[in-house]
Design a binder for these strands. Structure first.
Lengths: 166, 166
DNA sequence: GAGCTTGGCTTTTAATTTGCAAGTCATAAG
DNA sequence: CTTATGACTTGCAAATTAAAAGCCAAGCTC
């Protein structure tokens, strides 16, 4: 993988460089759920153990996870992998993936849907929508523009989807 | 890639099955920016053309993009790749990736930051936070719980990050 | 009007990544 | 004493990705 332009100016591209390898998002999902141990990741994901080693090392190197000793086996110290702040900050990404997956894909076997709840009251947390503080209102997709100054000095609208009927 | 459990009960896992291959997120980012043509994707991403063929075909098959004819070259019809509704619904994922990338990674060369604006007024759109309609307030990470019924019948809190000082 | 370029691919072959199996080392369990 | 567990590492096969070349029709170049 000769990453021609590493560390591109686009933050989405940079996020994908760190998070876009196979297994990485699933490891971070499990870590967010509270999983910390090598063997638990291996068993839950069904990932090959050498791959898991490499992925965990990369995530530690990238600062999303950190190795915390939890037992001393004679000469060898056992570590668990805990989220750093950068790792914890992935929750909005995971939430967005979950919402998309729930809306646009179906499980092989019917399953109860995943839910996101407010601990205090137990009610559902609403899907986060873009919000304009200035206008004090939510803004939907077709009313937002993006600005990527390294490509274009002016804001551009998002591509409109083709209407359902062809 | 012997995907042992395809179409898992977890919507994050299902989203990753569709979106998690190399290049896919970047193709969808560019499509969201209005890119539609094979040659433009190829040139912008630096992806090998055979890979691009395969990825576009998979995205069309998965219903995120659709092929729309735009020219008839004698025997051959040229198509462009346009977003479907499912593809357009990826904006929150891209937004979340951009926010994370902006906060936790740095470009090789300093660059003006990417911005998300309200077309009507030109002001910034705030980062979407989880919101509890019932309590009428935003809910931060440590006050939310997730429920994944196929794993556990009770809601679980999200893992806390280790504090910065080791 | 012969030749070059463009757009969108497909095919072949090479490099890289992933997966599987086995090995290691030290403590714990039976 | 034997087996199991946890967290790896190493070696090799299988799958995925990349690089390169080829194709085909239209359009443009001189």
């Amino acid at each position: 993988m000769p990453r021609s332009t590493t560390k591109p100016p686009c933050p989405i591209g940079r996020a994908v460089e760190v998070l876009g390898e196979r297994w990485t998002l699933l490891i971070m999902r499990n870590a967010t759920r509270g999983m910390t141990r090598f063997e638990d990741f291996r068993a839950d994901l069904g990932i090959a153990d050498n791959m898991l080693s490499i992925r965990l090392a990369r995530l530690v190197g990238a600062g999303l996870l950190t190795r915390v000793p939890y037992r001393n086996d004679g000469g060898r110290t056992r570590h668990e992998y805990r989220l750093t702040q950068a790792g914890a900050d992935m929750t909005p990404i995971l939430r967005a993936l979950a919402d998309w997956g729930a809306q646009h894909t179906k499980p092989a076997e019917p399953a109860e849907p995943m839910q996101f709840l407010h601990q205090a009251c137990g009610n559902h947390l609403s899907t986060p929508a873009a919000y304009c503080e200035h206008c004090q209102q939510p803004v939907h997709r077709e009313d937002q523009v993006w600005l990527s100054p390294w490509r274009l000095r002016t804001p551009y609208p998002l591509a409109e989807p083709v209407p359902p009927g062809n």
